[in-house]
Design a protein around this nucleic acid. Structure first.
Lengths: 143, 143
DNA sequence: TAATAACTATTAGTATAACAACTATTTCTA
DNA sequence: TAGAAATAGTTGTTATACTAATAGTTATTA
């Protein structure tokens, strides 16, 4: 691997990740979902895992605590999540969906799946495996 | 490609792009480069293309005008770039490196190349081609 | 040529990302 | 068990991303 190619790697990765997020956000806004992409990711994981500590949620989503705190703040303001006290650890909160939050996830899920799939048109199972292997290698190289 | 795999794609892409940037930024800070990754990208392109309109620079780097305005502001504050009036269009600025900016690029270039290459350890020429093809496909699917 | 449209850069506001510092708690350990 | 260390969450600060709005300039067109 010669040096000059690297900039391509980095450039392509950054550019594509940016566009994937940008595309999803534009559809979200256009369709009046009233959540950001990052807020959606939090909602989805809460739906799948019921109630979680902010801590665990942050680790799961590769976000740091301050970032997650602020996302949860916004979701609580919107009435989609609530913070409940942890049964045994008074430092922690258990975050969960409100009834409205649950409804939102169920309403949006299929629409968002469709939006997300658009990116992968023309790509195969085999491409997925290559893609995963390469990204995982990069991830581990820097870990 | 079934639906459930998509989330893997999106997740892996986002996670890896984030770590690539984070890793580079940590090395930059650690080594006292005193520029952010995005500021570096601007410096590097100015080095390679001499003087550019903010406009063109933004398009080239996939950044929007407000974002670029602020990056240039910071670089000017640091004495690494200057805004010069455009010869024929008084709306525009031609941005270029100062002597100090040029020196900075020349000093940091080899170090940054080394930092960047770390991500690609264990990956081949062939991997690059796969990677590029897949990312380009995604990029175009959403364009 | 006068009015309108388009363009360039900036500013303002909100959201996310990363880091440091802080409070309140819990766990460790000597 | 008292003191130290670790942990959970928040707040503050800086940088970037995106949208909208604005000022100043240039281009269009009627």
């Amino acid at each position: 691997m010669n040096d000059d190619q690297y900039s391509s790697y980095s450039f392509l990765l950054d550019r594509t990740a940016k566009r994937v997020k940008q595309y999803a956000q534009q559809r979200f806004t256009e369709l009046g979902f009233n959540v950001t992409v990052d807020q959606w990711i939090v909602l989805k994981h809460l739906y799948e895992h019921d109630s979680m500590k902010q801590n665990e949620l942050a680790e799961f989503l590769f976000k740091d605590n301050p970032t997650l705190t602020r996302i949860i703040d916004l979701l609580c303001d919107k009435g989609l999540t609530v913070r409940n006290v942890h049964p045994t650890d008074r430092r922690s909160f258990m975050v969960s969906l409100t009834k409205e939050g649950t409804k939102k996830v169920e309403q949006l899920s299929p629409k968002i799946k469709a939006i997300r799939l658009k990116a992968w048109e023309g790509l195969s199972e085999r491409d997925f495996n290559q893609f995963k292997r390469i990204l995982d290698t990069i991830y581990k190289n820097l870990g």
